[in-house]
């Protein structure tokens, strides 16, 4: 494992911790899109189908369990916890799941490396992860008041994707036969979706003003 991959995973882990901190400690999910969180739960559920049958390393198994567990508990918190659900901004979080899930499923059935259930589901999870942030970005744009933790959560998620690209570049030059078009293109699209957010995030940081996305 190279430093970019490790840094990417740690950034991903940090994003989840920031979100759990907000939800568990402050008992608030204001500005957080339940739709995006449900899509992530679906992403991990479909990607880690082989978690108990395909062993890679202790590190991988533990991380997979963390991402699965945190994704589903975040969804549970927002839907079921009596305090947390009260802060959920339902009226602005209006993105429809099937606009995202259905095209990804169709694309995975059409474009994959091998037509088996596991590989198609794995490919579906890649396509879905690429666009799962969209409801969250739309919600941010509609929210006049983006609090610090929400801004940091989205920033860490974007940073994680950018570090994964560096990881692929590194692996491409250091490992033989390392070419994964499906992973790379969907990962690149996923990272590009954050470009706009990054721009305003750094602007607000540089000018020391509150983060706000233009409508």
């Amino acid at each position: 494992m190279n430093i970019f991959r490790l840094a990417g995973d740690m950034t991903h882990l940090a994003s989840v911790l920031v979100l759990l901190l907000k939800i568990h400690t402050i008992k608030s999910c204001a500005g957080i899109s339940l739709k995006t969180q449900e899509l992530y739960a679906l992403v991990f559920a479909s990607r880690y189908l082989d978690i108990f049958t395909h062993y890679v390393s202790f590190y991988n198994t533990v991380m997979k369990l963390i991402f699965l567990g945190s994704a589903f508990s975040i969804v549970w918190y927002i839907r079921r916890h009596k305090l947390v659900r009260r802060s959920y901004d339902k009226d602005h979080d209006t993105f429809r799941h099937y606009f995202i899930v259905l095209p990804c499923l169709i694309l995975a059935l059409l474009i994959h490396e091998k037509f088996t259930f596991r590989v198609v589901m794995w490919t579906f999870s890649l396509y879905l992860e690429a666009v799962a942030i969209l409801p969250q970005l739309v919600l941010l744009q509609r929210t006049r008041n983006i609090d610090n933790l929400t801004g940091q959560y989205v920033f860490l998620l974007g940073a994680y994707r950018a570090l994964y690209i560096l990881n692929w570049v590194y692996r491409y030059f250091t490992e033989p036969h390392y070419v994964h078009w499906i992973t790379w293109i969907s990962g690149l699209i996923q990272t590009l979706l954050y470009a706009d957010f990054f721009y305003y995030y750094f602007q607000s940081w540089k000018n020391n003003v509150k983060l706000e996305l233009p409508a």
């Binding site: 890679v56 490396e113 794995w122 036969h177 992973t183």
Partner: peptide, 10 residues
């Protein structure tokens, strides 16, 4: 055989 997917990544 395993497809050439990035199975060692998360």
């Amino acid at each position: 055989a395993e497809p050439s997917v990035v199975k060692d990544e998360l």
